[in-house]
Design a protein around this nucleic acid. Sequence first.
DNA 1: ATCTCTGCAAATGTTTTGCATCAGC
DNA 2: GCTGATGCAAAACATTTGCAGAGAT
Lengths: 124, 124
Amino acid sequence: MERTTAQRKAIHTVLEEAGRPMSPPEIFEAARSIAPGLGMATVYRTIKRMLDDGVLAAVELPGEAPRYERAGLGHHHHFRCNDCNKVFDLTGCASAFDKCLPKGFALESHEIFLFGRCETCATG
Amino acid sequence: MERTTAQRKAIHTVLEEAGRPMSPPEIFEAARSIAPGLGMATVYRTIKRMLDDGVLAAVELPGEAPRYERAGLGHHHHFRCNDCNKVFDLTGCASAFDKCLPKGFALESHEIFLFGRCETCATG
DNA sequence: ATCTCTGCAAATGTTTTGCATCAGC
DNA sequence: GCTGATGCAAAACATTTGCAGAGAT
């Protein structure tokens, strides 16, 4: 059975209060100040556990280490600041990219990635 | 001054003939059969050099190691096969995603990423 | 008391770097 | 011959795992 420990509560709290996707080192730093002595291995193990439990969702940006945020936010996309490198959630967006940015945010570029099956694998 | 070596020619050839973005291990395998004894370090060093020279462009998919392709292909997006994991170039695409897929390719999902500056960094 | 969770340290996998040697110019 | 490029091995860096001991139930 799953146990409630100070470390897990700290990690939970950090992710809950951030309201944006965070990287493992970010989570580690923030949670360490709540639960001193916390180890990096525990952060990774807890993230993996929370992913399996469907509590967390991975946010993977091209060319960057994955970040994690609360699951169950519905379909949405993300915005990364080129200065501070933080990642923010966007809502209700489809293709009018600049329309869905929070006020004050400046759009500089976008990437679109498609996934599926190539001809060889689709027919095989 | 830059020198023309068998190793560089091999790596060049491999990337030229592939016509799709390749990962360092893929490049290593393919180039090794042209230039036996080739080392992984040389592959990475040559990739970096070619990036600096503007000969190569990085293709970074979310959650995956970067691939590389010839630079100067103009703005385009990419398609990764969920079966064989190969990445292909797409052309002339904007937002009618399924319209721009090569014949026989099946679209399963897409990701959109926006980049720019958040309010804090834009006004700072 | 049991059995999970934790921290540490060692292992892993990938990319980078140091260095002596090799080869293009 | 000079100087940049190479291969190997070691280093760096991020993530994972083994293990003995701490802590939740």
